[in-house]
């Protein structure tokens, strides 16, 4: 179908700066398609993180704010509280969300802030040159774990989706991936759902996307996909971890 290849209106017509085999481009497209399908481009504010996606606003065409490292959920809270009519999403990597910004994401999720977080987990710091992330796998070599992540020093990688789903408040927490075409439709549906829940004024939603970073992993793009499937996916299982209909009794989430 020709439709599949049409450029979403919310996506600028220009090549990205991302490395070959990087998944940011695909995820940008899925977000842009979602914005188009919901017809919300004119009332959407994105928050770009510190990380490889710091320039996300060069590709996604809507209002944007640029966050300090880790602070996107606090900024989204600020926007959404004073302008509940706007659609707000944060786009964050694993260093941003799971390390320096862990406090902000947990509290925003727990307050049930009505925004959507796209969390790109590629198990490494991309922007600063391949350092260890909280989601780096055991024995995975990075520029700050040259002998591999030692779990006795760094602990086990953080499963963000499971961690946040331990909170009662959040509406929707899911983990998907875009590393092969066969996963993309599900990821798209999850992003669409997360934005829809926001429109319905349900509490916080987060879509974790297991991703690749061939450049910093030191692999060719096909090797990176294979490694993600063999090593990341078993540890980071795909699927919904929390849906809005669970815990209805306790959670303050309400439809309008």
């Amino acid at each position: 179908m020709a439709k599949t290849f049409q450029r979403p209106q919310a996506l600028f017509d220009q090549p990205t700066h991302y490395c070959p085999g990087c998944t940011h481009g695909v995820i940008h497209r899925l977000v842009a398609e979602t914005i188009d399908e919901l017809g919300i481009r004119g009332r959407t504010v994105g928050i770009a993180p510190v990380g490889c996606a710091v320039l996300a606003y060069n590709y996604i065409d809507c209002d944007f704010q640029e966050a300090a490292h880790g602070r996107a959920p606090a900024m989204a809270t600020g926007i959404k509280r004073v302008r509940p009519d706007l659609m707000v999403f944060t786009y964050q990597g694993d260093g941003d969300l799971a390390s320096i910004g862990m406090g902000e994401i947990i509290h925003a999720a727990n307050r049930g802030e009505k925004f959507t977080t796209i969390f790109v987990n590629n198990a490494i710091y991309g922007m600063t040159g391949g350092q260890m992330a909280p989601t780096t796998m055991p024995n995975q070599r990075t520029s700050t774990s040259p002998f591999g992540r030692k779990t006795e020093e760094a602990g086990m990688p953080i499963r963000v989706a499971e961690l946040l789903s331990a909170l009662v408040t959040p509406a929707y927490v899911t983990r998907q991936t875009v590393i092969r075409p066969k996963y993309i439709q599900k990821a798209k549906k999850a992003i669409l759902k997360a934005f829809t829940y926001q429109m319905e004024k349900r509490c916080f939603s987060l879509v974790e996307l297991v991703s690749t970073c061939p450049t910093n992993w030191g692999m060719t793009p096909p090797e990176a996909i294979q490694w993600a499937e063999d090593v990341l996916l078993p540890y980071y299982p795909l699927g919904d971890v929390k849906t809005p209909d669970a815990d209805v009794k306790e959670a303050p989430c309400k439809t309008k």
Binding site: C19, P20, G21, G129, G130, S143, P146, P214, T215, N216, W217, G218, M219, T220, P221, P222, E223, A224
Partner: peptide, 16 residues
Amino acid sequence: AGGDDVGATVLAALAE
């Protein structure tokens, strides 16, 4: 390439 083994890592991604 960049310095040290860290800077050389990118070469692996170009193997193809």
